[in-house]
Design a protein around this nucleic acid. Sequence first.
DNA 1: TCTGGGGTCCTAGGACCC
DNA 2: TCTGGGGTCCTAGGACCC
Length: 420
Amino acid sequence: MIFGLCDVNNFYVSCERSFNPAINNRPVIVLSNNDGCAVARSNEVKALGVKMGAPLHQIQNLVQQHNFAVFSSNYSLYADMSNRFESIIESYTPEVEKYSCDEVFFQLDGLKHKGHLGAYMRKMVAEIKQGLGLPVCVGLAPTKTLCKIANHYAKSLSVAGGVLALFSEYNLKNALEILPVNEVWGIGRKHTEHLAKLGITTALQLRDADKKWIRKRFSVVIERTIMELRGVSCLELNDVPEKKKQIVCTRSFGEKTSDKTVLREAIGYHVSRACVDLRSQQSVAKSITVGIRTNPFSKRDQQSVRSITVELPYASDDTRDFQAAATQALNRIYQADYKYKKAGIMLNGLSDKGVIQYDLFSTRQPQDDAIMGVMDQINNKYGKDVLRCGSQGFDASWVMKSERRSPRYTTQWDDVIGVA
DNA sequence: TCTGGGGTCCTAGGACCC
DNA sequence: TCTGGGGTCCTAGGACCC
């Protein structure tokens, strides 16, 4: 088997740089929602020791001192660049799995006729750089887990051409020997601590450990990781994107609030978003969870974290059903004496729309379905939320901060460079 | 009052990923 | 004063069934 992984270096930062070459040699960070944390860092910023997710207010000194370029997240730009990135890869091999917005797995087994695969991949890397201005690296290996590692070295060693392959036992052994075990895909903080107690600190030690013994102490997940490190492929390429099994929408507020109406509107907004998502994958949901919480970082505020799940009598994809359930849920968990910082909802128990059983006594008529369809169509055509439920409100006083967003270069006519 | 063994389904919580 | 959001998979344990 020949797997590949192509991944964009510092994706959000690279998108910003692609349209703004003036920041090519400056340290750059992109912030999370609400302009809270640094979720993407240029190499210069990483070199200064700024960690993933560092709160902006804690790194202000560095930001000033080194003249960082700071951006709010510009999701429409990143989503569009992500699609273009994937298309180019698809033109090189038909078997691809989009793993995340900046990572694509693929298989090359059918492409031996293309000649030297390393050269073929270097051509792809160059085309992505040329066409999108995005720097990418490619790792090639017999399993997905090893691809991650090959990709890691392609990046950290700044390999010429951006492509690194790991196939021979000699190369694999050298690569795994010096790799800390926490760099292995699937080994997080907890497992790293646990493994250290068993004397396992490198990827090579993990690979050569007794897999049954490890399985007893951990789970089948790590056993699979061991097999993957040995070059036995256990994780297949998921080339048909699967439907989501739950849909989550949560946001922090720009400012704390105790106002129930504001909470209701925020939740109403999330319900609408989630239901659009639900319908677009032709699913229905059986229950909705509504949650509200105070700011966990505040030392002064009284803390409260509450959530509740409401079952619908029948699985639905109708925004109105979930709005009603959400209102009910909020009434049960809301307490006036807290300052809330975040609200969210989750749709659970998803299944395919085709197979819902209507109750014999259900009052719902099938033609009701048309209403939601029409609403989605109108909103698609004239813009998000032109048509909406009243419970969503109109002024959205809870909206988050996004003070340094760059223009939507590729998805808004007015923002396209060169358009007056 | 004594009381077996096997199976499924569901949920909560933990761990991990980007 | 300021600290993101959206997912998946696995396991253990309880409820229930025969």
